[in-house]
Design a protein around this nucleic acid. Structure first.
Lengths: 220, 220
DNA sequence: ACCTGAACACCGTTCAAGT
DNA sequence: ACCTGAACACCGTTCAAGT
């Protein structure tokens, strides 16, 4: 649908229309020509407002990151609160699959880290880590969360996965453990795998606080 | 350089030339027309041999995964051997950045998991995990490694990272911990962060075997 | 069975020209 | 300051026609 009003085109209008197109079919479908058609202008007008496609995508990434809500930690222990931050960040990112795609296409993965960083620093600090070690713990969690979301999204986009894990583990009974073979043949439960992974990582990162900290399914 | 011989074009020749192009400048630079020029044939001949660009990339992914060596565990404890498998997988993947890009573009992340899966199953089993819990541990490590490599690669491709972490933590001294702020302002040491992350995850995943298992920098 | 050129329907971007 | 159409140099893919 072209713009209704006949007022001058603005940079924000361009960004809005671009965001709408990306939201529908991903960044690959964002075409300068389609965008112009949507706006009811000539293709070349867009260039005057946003420069080119690259910087248009950059601006979109920036806008979308700013839209993301701050993650609010919840839970009694630092470990539990870190897990809650991780879950929140994953949820925010999954609500913006187009952001994930844009950020990856543009090489800006870094941007997805920021919304959760302050919260993570705070919690890691509360758990007793300081200095370089605290920074490394924060980064380990950030890499874990963003990496997980990247893999998860990519997996969802995939077609039928031809020689996938299924066939592989059907044939050779994995270590004579049929339950393991069955479990590997099924697709994983993404939320469960995510939470348990983060919990295990955090358990391994934080100083032991005299006992189990997070009540996860992995008894010591 | 066009093909020297004047024998019939083969599917393998097409794949070889395509692999060479991808190796030089990534999958985005693989153009049917450039490929034809490289082979000294008409563009349309390629279609007869490989169908279209999509299936050409699929075939390339398959070939590259098969080229990857099997990962050989090393170390005294299961935890140490899992870490060594993770390091091996990361190294194999990083030696094939074009594979990472292709696999991500085609939504086939799954394929990157397979070379290490058997080894991981074996080690997790040796550590005493069975059934669904063992499967989840295997997958947690797989997601961690592949996710890490994805984030790491993307980060390397990025330009200067405009409002990057640096400025953010320069201003507000993070939790009044200048060492932490400095550490977050610097880019991380990727190998170190990777190994410590995997080690922490594995520590959290495996049943405690009565004491430290991997000798990492995280004392309990 | 294999290869070809022409053609179609797309791209992003530049540029001189308009108001 | 803002918008325009024409043009350039690309794409992937199809198809009828060749040998």
């Amino acid at each position: 649908m072209p713009r209704s009003t006949r007022t001058a085109l603005t940079r924000d209008e361009v960004l809005d229309a671009a965001a709408a197109l990306v939201k529908q079919h991903g960044p690959a479908s964002l075409t300068m020509r389609k965008l112009a058609a949507e706006l009811g202008t000539a293709v070349t007008s867009i260039y005057w407002h946003v420069g080119n496609r690259e910087s248009l995508l950059d601006a979109l990434v920036e806008r979308t990151v700013e839209e993301m809500g701050a993650v609010r930690p919840a839970g009694r222990t630092p470990a539990a609160r870190i897990v809650s931050v991780a879950r929140g960040l994953r949820r925010e990112l999954r609500e913006r699959p187009h952001l994930i795609a844009m950020v990856h296409e543009r090489g800006l993965t870094e941007r997805m880290f920021l919304p959760a960083q302050q919260a993570l620093v705070h919690e890691v600090h509360a758990a007793g880590l300081r200095g370089a070690r605290a920074a490394e713990a924060v980064r380990a969690v950030q890499f874990q969360v963003v990496g997980y979301v990247l893999v998860e999204r990519n997996r969802e986009r995939a077609p039928v996965q031809h020689p996938g894990e299924e066939d592989l583990w059907d044939a050779q009974t994995a270590e004579h453990d049929p339950a393991l073979a069955r479990a590997l043949a099924r697709p994983p439960d993404p939320e469960r795998l995510f939470v348990n992974s983060v919990r295990a990582l955090v358990d391994g990162l934080l100083p032991r606080a005299g006992g189990a900290v997070s009540g996860g399914p992995y008894p010591q």
